[in-house]
Design a protein around this nucleic acid. Structure first.
Length: 389
DNA sequence: TCTGGGGTCCTAGGACCC
DNA sequence: TCTGGGGTCCTAGGACCC
């Protein structure tokens, strides 16, 4: 008995969700006109998080700078994103999917897989998928694509076919006809770099990838990755629908400046801000971190990253900030303009057997108090999720 | 046109230990 | 004195995802 997996993907998620919110407020449906959702629209450097179908028809795409989209379409409607509303919408459609199967894996804020192997009850999976799609539309007010296949990979590839508001299948018997003619870039896990490497070797379609020998593919992308690409191009994917939410492994925050900055005071202020955010998030989720990393992005987009291990895991803002400052002084000359600074922590643990050192810095008590007050103030404030979804 | 913010995993070299 | 091999940890960098 083969498996049946659905992949549910919200169409232009942030844009659809914003449209529903505006409709609730009695405003016109932005899905019907060229419109986009962005971060801060007043920031010249903000980019597009989602575009409506009419905007897409004009060539406006996610990840484009807003300024570029405005040049294409000066009358473009630009709306700022609302994270807490998006979380509500996400939870809503995930809950509906869960009614269809409890074996559900959330893949991102707007995508999930459900294992439907035991849940179709003899009905045509396409009928069940169509019912799910209509159910979400009726109850939530936005549309989704549902991909139906024998595994997660093919279900996800299928949901990416024609949009919006569609159900597509991609069974093993359809792989040749529906997937092999597509460009390699359309295959999951093939990004820009791998596409370049493959096409320069004459591998243009997923079918080319499926048929090439593993040996020569290994020479292009490395053995391990070659194995995965080769299997996926042939429609093979044994990975289960994972219902467990994995523990976070890292937490980071970064700030891109409206203009590149070179004044150490400005850089330090930004570093302070991201340290507060990161430390607050790990405290909120009961973690301590043993590794602190810091990164800078130059005007030309080159990134320098530096990390250090702590002798003891911490969640204290001041400790994290101090390490980051030390790392910054090692990677930055204090003069070169910077586009972005970021700070991350990893090696996260819930172990709280704190080694009370006799020589603990007496300032630690003060730092902890400062953090408590910070957390208190932040508790009611709007908070972005630690991880999407 | 001029490129956000937040994650995961893999690789590769050097240090260190047995 | 010189020669190994294997395992693990650390750090830097790069690829991918949404």
């Amino acid at each position: 008995m083969g498996r049946i997996v659905f992949h549910i993907d919200v169409n232009s998620a942030f844009l659809s969700w914003t449209a529903v919110k505006l409709l609730n407020e009695g405003q016109p449906d932005i899905r019907l006109v060229p419109s986009v959702v962005s971060g801060d629209p007043s920031d010249r450097r903000s980019i597009i998080a989602a575009a409506s179908m009419p905007a897409k028809k004009l060539g406006i795409r996610s990840a484009q700078p807003v300024s570029m989209a405005l040049r294409i379409c000066p009358s473009l409607v630009i709306v700022q994103g609302d994270w807490s509303w998006y979380r509500e919408c996400s939870q809503g459609f995930i809950a509906i999917c869960r009614e269809y199967s409890p074996v559900l894996q959330q893949f991102s804020i707007d995508e999930c897989f459900i294992d439907m192997s035991l849940r179709c009850g003899g009905r045509d999976p396409v009928d069940v998928a169509t019912q799910l799609k209509e159910d979400i539309k009726a109850r939530m007010g936005f549309t989704v694509n549902v991909g139906v296949g024998p595994n997660k990979l093919l279900a996800k590839m299928a949901s990416d076919f024609e949009k919006p508001d569609k159900v597509h299948t991609l069974w093993e018997s359809e792989v040749q006809e529906k997937m092999w003619p597509l460009g390699v870039r359309d295959l999951l896990w093939v990004g820009k770099k791998t596409e370049e490497r493959l096409t320069s070797n004459g591998i243009k379609t997923i079918g080319d990838l499926a048929k090439i020998g593993l040996g020569s593919l290994s020479g292009m992308v490395g053995r391990r990755y070659a194995l995965q690409l080769h299997e996926n191009a042939n429609g093979i994917d044994d990975s289960p629908v994972e219902t467990e939410i994995p523990e976070a492994k890292s937490c980071s925050a970064e700030r891109t400046f409206a203009k590149d900055l070179s004044d150490p005071k400005d850089i330090d202020r930004a570093l302070f801000n991201v340290a507060c955010i990161v430390a607050h998030r790990i405290r909120r989720d009961n973690f301590r971190a043993s590794t602190v990393s810091m990164f800078i992005k130059h005007s030309d987009f080159t990134v320098l990253q530096k990390q250090t291990s702590l002798s003891q895991p911490t969640n204290i803002t001041a400790v994290i900030l101090n390490e980051a400052r030390r790392l910054l002084s090692e990677v930055w000359d204090g003069v070169t303009p910077l586009r972005q600074v970021g700070l991350g922590v990893s090696k996260l643990t819930h172990d709280f057997y704190e080694q009370m050192s006799l020589f603990e810095d007496p300032k630690m008590d003060y730092y902890r108090q400062w953090d408590r007050e910070y957390d208190q103030k932040r508790a009611d404030a709007k908070e972005e999720p630690f991880r999407k979804g």
